[in-house]
């Protein structure tokens, strides 16, 4: 009975080879941009092609990128977390508070990570259990978390972190390679595997493309989203440890506005802000592009605020240009 379809037609797995698709991908375009920026920079400033200054340049993006990986998954799943910078502030404040009460480095790490996780869980409860839109929830928790830091610290600051705590933000693993870049690389690999090589990652894509369809396919949508918020909180905790260690002090305004830079990095990395598509390697390249642009302009004595013009133009430009081009081509084809 099964053999009713006698001449079943063969459907190939793939229409184009993987290398063909890779060549036409967003990531390739972005990598080209990165190389161009790198080449321009090395011509523009003689100080650019120096291992130590390049190593310094990585601080421009490592902490943001750690969060950006988790944020990429969250955005692919169709949610967003704007409270990440405030989680850094709260986690850093908690660590500073603990230092005043004699906590050592291991306790600080625990506290930073725990506060991050708790903040992530807080957002997750509002979004997945109460079913509220994440953009509003995290605008609210963004004010709340940083607000708590302000209540605790006012216009003061916590200092006096233990000497060995400085290793995370200031130490080197080997030669010019900082501890932060090592953590960045490790997290990048973990998230690459998680998103691209596991069932969990597949669920993230399915939810982002069609949350109802994913639910109807037996995916536990709310559970996956809950975990994603936890992960984003946890990564903010890691970033808080690195940033606090690097700065050696905590003010309530720490990492102010960083959430927007993180989102910019994710979107620049080719993640669709509406959810459903994107990749970790894209975000890695975007991190380098943003770091290189900032560093290169810094060498040319361009002030930080003007660099933000470039970042803003880059963000809109990389999304707008392909669309303008498509419209142009469409117009030419149909006179």
């Amino acid at each position: 009975m099964t053999q009713t379809n006698i001449n079943t037609r063969h459907i190939p797995d793939r229409l184009h080879s993987r290398s063909y698709r890779a060549l036409r991908s967003w990531e390739t375009l972005l990598l080209t941009v990165a190389i161009v920026v790198f080449v321009i920079n090395s011509f523009a400033s003689p100080y650019f092609l120096n291992a130590w200054s390049l190593s310094d340049a990585t601080f421009n993006f490592t902490e943001k990128a750690m969060i950006a990986f988790a944020m990429a998954l969250l955005i692919i799943a169709g949610e967003i977390d704007l409270s990440v910078a405030s989680i850094i502030a709260l986690a850093s404040t908690a660590m500073g508070f603990a230092v005043q009460h004699g906590a050592g480095t291991p306790e600080l790490i625990m506290i930073g990570l725990t506060v991050g996780l708790l903040c992530g869980a807080f957002n997750a409860v509002f979004v997945t259990i109460l079913g509220l839109p994440s953009i509003v929830v995290t605008i609210g928790s963004m004010s709340l978390f940083r607000g708590i830091s302000f209540i605790i610290l006012g216009d003061g600051a916590f200092r006096g972190y233990p000497a060995d705590f400085a290793w995370f933000g200031q130490g080197y693993i080997y030669w010019v390679f900082t501890v932060e870049i090592a953590i960045f690389a490790l997290i990048a690999v973990i998230y690459f595997v998680l998103l691209h090589k596991t069932n969990f990652g597949r669920a993230v894509y399915a939810i982002g493309n069609n949350p109802t369809g994913a639910l109807f396919s037996g995916i536990r949508v709310q559970r996956v989203k809950f975990i994603l918020f936890l992960l984003t909180g946890l990564m903010s905790g890691v970033a808080a440890i690195c940033l606090t260690s690097r700065l050696g002090s905590t003010r309530p305004s720490i990492a102010l506005g960083m959430e927007l830079e993180v989102v910019t990095m994710v979107v620049l990395g080719g993640v669709n802000i509406l959810g459903g598509s994107g990749s970790i390697h894209g975000v890695v390249i975007a991190a380098f592009v943003m770091g290189l642009v900032t560093f290169g302009l810094g060498l040319l004595n361009v002030p930080g605020i003007v660099m933000s013009i470039f970042i803003g133009l880059l963000l809109i430009g990389v999304i707008a240009l392909p669309r303008v081009w498509a419209m142009f081509v469409a117009k030419r084809n149909t006179p």
Binding site: D13, N199, R202, Y205, A206, G208, N209, N210, T212, G213, A214, F216, S217, G218, I219, G276, S277
Partner: peptide
């Protein structure tokens, strides 16, 4: 369109979604 197929994902990923186990 809304509840059945997950538009945006390839055919094979649609088919295997509930069978990933």
């Amino acid at each position: 369109g809304k509840q059945g197929a997950i538009i945006g994902l390839p055919i094979f990923q649609n088919v295997t979604l509930p069978s990933l186990g």
